[in-house]
Amino acid sequence: MDFLNAIVALSNFVLIPALAYGSQLALGALGVTLIYGILRFSNFAHGDTMAIGTMVAIYATWALQGWGVSLGPLPTALLALPVAIAVTALLLLLIDRGVYRFYRGVKAVPVTFVIASIGVMFILNGLTRLFIGPDDQRFDDGARFLIHPRAFREATGLAEGLSIRTTQALTVVTAILVVAALFWFLRRTRTGKSMRAYSDNEELALLSGINPERVVAITWIVVAGLSVIAGVLYGLDKSFKPFVYFQLLLPIFASAILGGLGNPVGAIAGAFIIAFSEVTVTYAWKKVLTYVLPDALAPEGLVQFLGTDYKFAVSFIILVLVLLIRPTGLFRGASA
C-alpha cells in the first residue's frame, strides 16, 4: 500500500510535471535547433518569440470567450492557435526580411546574426510589454482535472490522490502530435527533405537547385508554429508572464545543445533530460521517502537537494558537463 502511495506521490510531483515541462521545452528546443541548422545562428530572440506568439493567442482567446465560443472541457486557447501561428509567422517573415536577410546577403559571420537577434529580442520584448504589459495573465478555461485527486482517492482507497490536470495531459498529447507531424514533414515531404539537405550541406543543396530563400521562409513558418504551441502550452500549464518566457531561453538552449545543436531528435531527448533533472533535483523527497522507507529511517528534513529557485543551476551544470565531455552534444549535432 505504502509503495503504491509512493508511486502516486512520485507521479504527482515529479513524473507528470516533468513530462509536461519536458514537452514544452522540447517544442522550444526544436525551434532553436531548426534555426541553428538552417540559418546557422543561436537565436536569442526565441523566448520572446514564444512570448509574443502567446500574447496573440491570449488576445484571440479572450475574443473567442467574449463571443461565447468554447471547446467544452478543453481550453478555448486551442482554437486561437491557428490565428496566433499565422500572425507570428508573418511577424517572423517580416523580421527576416528587414533584419536577417541583409546579413545572409553579405555572408556575415554567425555572431553578427546573434547580435542582430539581441536587437530583435529587445523589440519583441518591448512590443509584448506595450500590448499586454509585464504582468501575469491567465487564459485557461475548461475542465481543470482529467483525474481529480479526491475522486482517485475514493475510487482506490489510497491515501495519496493521483492528479492529472487537463493542461498537463493536453501538453503531452499535443507535443506528441506536433513532433510526429514535424518529423513526417522533415522526412517524407519534398520541402522537408530540401530543408534537411540545406542544413547538411548548403553548397550541395544550392547546386541541386534548392531555393535558399524558400527554405529559410518555410523554416520561419515552422518555427512560428513550434514556438506558439510551446508558449501557449506553457502558459496554460503555468501562467503567462513575459519575463518568465525570456528566462526559458536558458533551459531551451541547454536542451538543444545537450542533444547537439541542429539535431531535432537530440533536442527532444535533451529537453526531457533537462526537465527531469530540474524537477528531480528541486523536489522535496520527504513524502515519497516516508512511504518507501521503514519508519526508523524516515527522513527528518525535506530531502531537497536544491531550492526551486536554483533550477537554472541544474540546466546549467548539465550544459557545462556536456560541453566539457562531449562538445557536439549527445546526438552529434551539426556543430563541430
Binding site: 545562428f41 543561436s42 536569442f44 554567425p110 541547454a254 545543445i257 557545462v320 562538445p327
Partner: peptide, 9 residues
C-alpha cells in the same frame, strides 16, 4: 554561442 549561453547561465 556556447560561451554566450554558459555566461548567461
Amino acid at each position: 554561442d556556447y560561451l554566450a549561453i554558459a555566461t548567461l547561465g
